[in-house]
Computed example of a mutant assay.
Amino acid sequence: MPAELEGRRLSTVLMSTLGLSRRLLRRIIHEDGFFLNGQPVRLSAIVRRGDLISWQLPDESPSIAPEQMPLDICYEDEDVMVVNKPAGILTHPSARERTGSLLAGVAYYLQKTGQTPHAVHRLDKYTSGAILFAKHAHAHHQLDRALRQGLVHRKYVALAYVQNDIPCGVWLHLVDDLAINPERPSRRIVVPEGKGERAITHALPLARTGHMVLFAFELETGRTHQIRLQMASRGMPLVGDRDYPYSVARKPDLVGRAGYFERVFPHQALHAYQLSWQLGENGPRKKSWARVPEAMERLWSLSGGMDTMEQWCERAAVASPTNDNRVTLDME
């Protein structure tokens, strides 16, 4: 125990300094799981310089039935793991689909260690890429706080149908208010400022082949379907996206190719290629990559794209919308 914490209650040190949640504190104390210098202790104890505090995390049971499935694990340590989610499976079960989720697959994988996975965030069913899982309740609490504090960052890459000649290498700044579509609650719509939740997206056109443009994205907010809707509303829908097609922009398709790009891929061509996080406010910054799906690479290559999407992701990873030039692209 460092000198600056001397004289404080153990409960204060555990919550404010080590980031344990009140709920977890109650569970551990119920099982007599806190120790001061190797001896059981109450939370009201006063800590002294040089004290050694330890605790035993309570056992957890997964909230869903574990299911065996192949996992593309990008990163793993004693607290977290990052899995490259394929397009077509849910992050966790829904009311309609109770089995086959990635969470169930991770729960099966962790059975051998006695740990229980907690999904820190999610991706749409038909979006692929990096998903962060906490292996225990304490890590989940820390990462949930980190997510709210903006310490968990995701970077995306996508293919989009673009008619006009936008310059590559210049960040586009997309700002809208989004709300639930009253006619289709599972979808979102753009609404006037102040009528919905603010969505801020930074989009970087990387390369072009014909009317297909390879984009990289960084998000300031994490609204449902944010990238897909904001791009479609500006007449740049993602390739394969039937939920947010070119018609969302409500303007004529002068090139006449929108329908083709809606059908050329079985789902939206969107992938979360990089994930970075920090476990606790003073923890080290960590980063993981999720390889672009082969189907997206093949589409880009067969369409005449130069270099691989993986190579473009490596270049995009070092670009920053805060340091590079950018323009604001409003809806027409």
Results as ranks from 00 to 15, higher is better:
Pro321Gly: 07
Pro2Met: 05
Asn84Thr: 04
Gly19Ile: 05
Ile131Lys: 00
Thr113Asp: 14
Pro86Gln: 03
Leu90Lys: 01
Gly33Thr: 02
Lys195Ala: 14
Asn84Ser: 11
Thr91Asp: 06
Pro205Leu: 09
Pro66Met: 06
Ile227Asp: 03
Gly50Glu: 11
Arg184Asp: 15
Asp253Thr: 12
Leu18Val: 04
Ala319Phe: 07
Glu281Tyr: 07
Ile89Gly: 07
Ser301Phe: 08
Glu218Asn: 10
Gln142Asn: 07
Glu6Lys: 08
Gly305Pro: 05
Gly114Phe: 09
Ala107Leu: 02
Thr17Asp: 14
Leu143Met: 01
Arg23Lys: 15
Val255His: 04
Gly235Pro: 09
Arg188Leu: 04
Gly259Ala: 15
Leu103Met: 08
Thr201Leu: 12
Arg49Cys: 12
Ser320Phe: 00
Lys85Gln: 06
Ser21Lys: 09
Arg8Gln: 10
Met15Ser: 11
His118Phe: 15
Arg122Ala: 11
Ala232Ser: 11
Val264Leu: 09
Gln142Ser: 12
Leu238Trp: 00
Gly196Arg: 03
Gly114Trp: 05
Arg298Val: 11
Met69Arg: 09
Met15Thr: 08
Tyr246His: 12
Val13His: 00
Asn37Cys: 00
Gly304Thr: 03
His211Tyr: 13
Leu20Gly: 04
Pro245Ile: 08
Leu5His: 06
Tyr156Lys: 02
Thr201Glu: 06
Val80Lys: 01
Pro293His: 05
Gly259Gln: 14
Asn37Trp: 11
Ile46Asn: 04
Ala207Cys: 07
His118Tyr: 14
Arg98Asn: 00
Gly50Arg: 01
Tyr260Val: 12
Thr91Asn: 06
Thr221Trp: 08
Val152Pro: 14
Leu302Glu: 14
Glu60His: 08
Arg96Ala: 15
Arg23Leu: 10
Ser54Lys: 01
Asp253Met: 12
Glu6His: 00
Lys155Cys: 00
Pro185Glu: 15
Tyr108Cys: 08
Ser11Gly: 01
Gly88His: 13
Val41Thr: 15
Ala199Val: 05
Asp72Leu: 12
Gly88Gln: 07
Ser16Glu: 13
Leu229His: 04
Leu214Lys: 07
Asp176Phe: 02
Gly88Glu: 12
